[in-house]
Design a protein around this nucleic acid. Structure first.
Length: 107
DNA sequence: AATGTGACACAAT
DNA sequence: TATTGTGCCACAT
């Protein structure tokens, strides 16, 4: 299978444990392209179109714990609701105790 | 091949 | 962590 950038992103996101979150930057770094954080978001968007909610993209936020991608989650459940259902509380599009929920792909 | 683009990150302010 | 500006990379067209 491919070593595509997108594919790597896909695989990492898939591994994010329940109730945990990570950042675009962390993922980018993990796949050896620390500066390609923007692409991570784009990759998710691309897969999103093809596979819908098949990956927990709601567990990926920017490095401040802000739900920058919530606009792409418009549906029955907002990104916020999905996260709160996992015990991650969100206030004004920002994750509370973000570093407590942060998950590093290297682990 | 060149240009546009984006769910970011970082430094400076 | 607000805002603004710049850098950055890989994909789509």
């Amino acid at each position: 299978m491919s070593d595509n950038f997108f594919n790597k992103v896909y695989k990492v996101v898939e591994k994010i444990p329940f109730g945990r979150v990570t950042t675009y930057g962390a993922i980018a770094k993990y796949i050896s392209s620390p500066k390609a954080s923007r692409m991570v978001g784009w990759a998710l968007n691309a897969y999103f179109k093809n596979k819908g909610f098949s990956i927990p993209a709601h567990r990926v936020v920017n490095r401040f714990g802000i739900l920058t991608g919530k606009k792409y989650f418009e549906g029955k459940n907002t990104m916020k609701e999905l996260l709160e259902s996992e015990g991650i509380y969100v206030k004004k599009d920002k994750i509370l105790d973000f570093n407590k929920h942060f998950w590093d792909p290297n682990i």
